[in-house]
Amino acid sequence: MTTVESSLSRAQPGLRARLDVPRRITLAAALVVIGAVALLLGFIVWRGLQLFVASGVPVAQIFTTAWQPDPLSAGTNYGLLPFIGGTLAVMAVAAVIATPLSVGLALFLAEVAPGWARRIVQPAMEVFVGIPSVVYGWLGLVVLVPYLRTQFGWMGFATGFSWFAGSLVLSLMILPTITSISYDAFVVVPADMRSASLALGTTRWQAIRHVVLPTAATGVATAIVFGLMRAAGEALAVQMVIGNAPVIPTSLARPVTTLTSQITLDMSDATGTWNEALWTMGLVLLIISLTFVLIIRRLGRRSTPA
């Protein structure tokens, strides 16, 4: 082995260096990305901790509910619980709405749809992804919010701006994400598995329910987590319909707020400690995202040995 190599490199002295070029280019690209991520993480962590380090706000205070951020007024309190709770709540309900629709659609596309239906729905999904979030927000603002106010006022939708409106708009936005990732999970289930079930005299639905779904389960779970991650990060569209009330979410019909929408709302006014608190909110958002990344990686590991 070694002799072959050395005789080759003797024959062409420049070969080894030339063979090394692709490796160096790809390595450089990897280093740039890793460096950027590391800088970003480091920066957000450092700025996010200033609230505690520089301004001396006790860590426990962010787990309170009162949001009185303006340093110019007396008695500030940086309770982030309404934002954390709002983010999780809006995200969770969005996932509850979007998951059955997306997984159902993905199953339809992967298992049932004839070719022509797939050729219509797949570009439609891509259009869904391509619509800017401000358009979703605008539609929510001029169509959904007034509709909730006028038609469902009796259910407590006093203004229409609400937890439910935010979740509904978000669910539309994460639908394509969950659909396309679950679709991929379904189509990689070998055709053999379905045939094996059908050859045992089961119906097509039984084959889907008892073979395709369990086999693709980790893929579907990954899809949902990706959807949640996208939901946690979305700011603009949610901010336009959610009402932005810094309270702990208790009713789907009432306004709430989220970490992202509060950051976009406050960033032009916030100075000093208030500004630091916004960075801390960014850090919390980052921790939520990283948790999802960890969950996805754990899911990925679990599915590999099968």
Binding site: D192, M193, A196, S197, A199, L200, P214
Partner: peptide, 12 residues
């Protein structure tokens, strides 16, 4: 019943 060319047990 049908036995396939390639063994195709379910992942269970």
């Amino acid at each position: 019943g049908l036995v396939f060319q390639r063994p195709n047990p379910f992942p269970m």
